[in-house]
Computed example of a mutant assay.
Amino acid sequence: MTTLSEINFRDPFILASAQTQLYYLFGTAGQTAWSGTPEGFDVYTSPDLVEWSGPFPAFRPEPGFWADHHFWAPEVHAYKDKYYMFASFKSEGIPRGTQILVADEPQGLYHPNSSGPVTPAGWECLDGTLYVDQEGQPWMVFCREWLEVTDGEMYAVRLNEELSAAAGEPVLLFRASEAPWSVGGTEGQYVTDGPFLHPGQGGELLMLWSSGGASGYAMGLARSASGSICGPWTQDAEPLYAKDGGHGMLFRDFAGRLLLTIHTPNRNPEERPVLLEVQESSRQLNIGEL
Rank of each mutant, 00 (worst) to 15 (best):
A156M: 07
W146P: 00
S224Y: 01
Y241E: 12
R272I: 09
E178K: 09
S177R: 15
L126D: 01
N266T: 12
E271G: 05
E161N: 08
E238W: 05
Q189F: 09
D244L: 07
L260C: 12
E169V: 04
M140A: 08
I100F: 01
P138M: 00
Y44R: 07
L290R: 11
P106H: 15
S17A: 14
P63F: 02
S228H: 08
L49T: 04
E124Y: 15
L159M: 03
S211T: 10
N286L: 10
E148Y: 02
P95Q: 02
T119C: 13
F59S: 10
A58E: 02
Q21F: 09
A156N: 01
D193Q: 14
K90H: 03
A166G: 07
L206W: 06
P195M: 01
A225N: 05
R267F: 03
G64Q: 12
C230K: 11
E178W: 12
K90D: 15
G245M: 00
G220N: 11
V278K: 01
T129G: 06
W34M: 12
L197Y: 06
S35F: 09
G200Q: 06
G200F: 02
S164H: 08
V132G: 13
F9V: 08
G231Q: 03
I100T: 00
L4Q: 07
S17Y: 12
